[in-house]
Simulated assay, not measured.
Amino acid sequence: MDRLKLHRNGPYLVMIPGLILLALFSIYPFLFLLKISFQKYSPIGKTKPFIGFDNYIHLFQDHNFWNAIKVTAIFVLSTVSLEFIIGLALAVILNQLRIGERIVQSLILIPIAMAPTVVGLMFRFMMNDQYGVLNYFAEIFGFSRTAWLSNLDFALPALIATDIWQWTPFMMIILLAGLKGISDEPYEAARIDGASAWQTFWYVTIPQLSKIIYIALLLRTIDSFRIYDTIYMMTKGGPINSTSTLSWIVYDKGFKFLEFGYGAAICVVLLIVVVTLLTLLLKKIDLFEVEKKS
């Protein structure tokens, strides 16, 4: 009888260590974050009074917060869309490559093997207005030197370009795996029907890749919202908050100015924004599943 009970409860017993870790490192921190977002919480203060929704009211009246919303939206939309377009192009090219495919893939994947702090530091040196390699080549081609990271017009595009350089290979490898999984039959049918290369790509390849595309967009969208390391190494949110994203002002308010309660409120709003976007993407994936079944 005891063995029968153990057999029935075995799966639940195996889950207990994982549930304990989930509670310690995910659920409890989130509940603590939610709690202090309603407090005037500071590590240097003796009292941590409950202030209700004051942090959230102040948040929506804060010009820096709305600026961070705008910068984050520009950054996420630009990086994810361009990484998808370039990554898809590279995936299609590599899928057609028959000689040296593994070597080319290995070379393209080098950026994602590097830490974001290293990439940020490398691009900061490359974009230096005095000794940066980009200005060196700019002068060779007759252009003047540019202070890429301290110029209001170029700082955010420089950050976007850095992210694209590092994470396009990630998008490419997911899409390439999807292309490898498409059978030859749809392409043979399209060839028999006399479809052009563009028609085959648009009406055969893209529909077959639809679920993979949304998964790739989902993963990169999550990661784009979390950018911090590269900003810290390259611009530190400047100049004049032109590269200050939501994740950056969480650090700025919470750890630089020790306004933990206010920083927690920003985290809660960021979480709501990300969860809403991810829910919409997941609904798209479910929609494609329903269409395929029908």
Rank of each mutant, 00 (worst) to 15 (best):
I213P: 00
T200Y: 06
Q39H: 15
V250F: 01
L280H: 00
H58Q: 15
F288W: 05
E139A: 10
N128I: 03
N241T: 07
L271M: 14
A89R: 00
Y262D: 01
T279R: 06
I51W: 09
L6Q: 10
L4G: 10
I140V: 14
N241P: 01
M122S: 15
L217D: 08
A89V: 01
Q39M: 14
N128P: 12
R8Y: 08
H7V: 06
F123N: 00
N64C: 01
M127E: 08
T79G: 06
S144R: 04
Y56F: 15
G238I: 03
L21Y: 13
N95A: 00
A264I: 02
Y56H: 07
A161T: 08
S78R: 06
Y41S: 14
S244L: 01
Q166S: 06
I240F: 15
V273M: 10
P186R: 00
G100Y: 02
I231P: 12
V92Q: 10
A216Y: 13
G238P: 03
K284H: 03
D193E: 09
G45Q: 14
G100C: 07
F141A: 12
A264S: 14
I112V: 14
T276P: 06
T117R: 01
T146Y: 02
F60Y: 13
G178M: 02
D54V: 11
F137V: 14
I140H: 14
M127Y: 15
Y214L: 15
T235C: 01
I272Y: 02
L24T: 09
M1Y: 12
A113T: 13
V275N: 07
K180Q: 09
H63S: 12
P43H: 13
N128Q: 08
L282A: 14
L219A: 08
L107H: 04
N9W: 09
I249Q: 11
L282Y: 11
F141L: 15
G237H: 01
L218Q: 08
K48L: 15
L270T: 04
Q105E: 11
N55T: 08
K5F: 05
G132R: 01
P169R: 05
A147W: 04
L159Q: 00
L24Q: 07
G120W: 03
A91Q: 01
T205E: 06
R3M: 10
L281Y: 09
V80G: 09
F30I: 12
E259C: 00
K211T: 12
I20N: 05
D129L: 03
L175A: 03
P29L: 07
K253V: 04
L88E: 04
V290Q: 11
S42I: 11
Q39G: 08
L121H: 07
M114E: 07
E188R: 08
A161H: 04
K283A: 09
R98Y: 04
S81M: 00
G52K: 09
G52M: 06
Y56V: 05
P49V: 15
K40A: 11
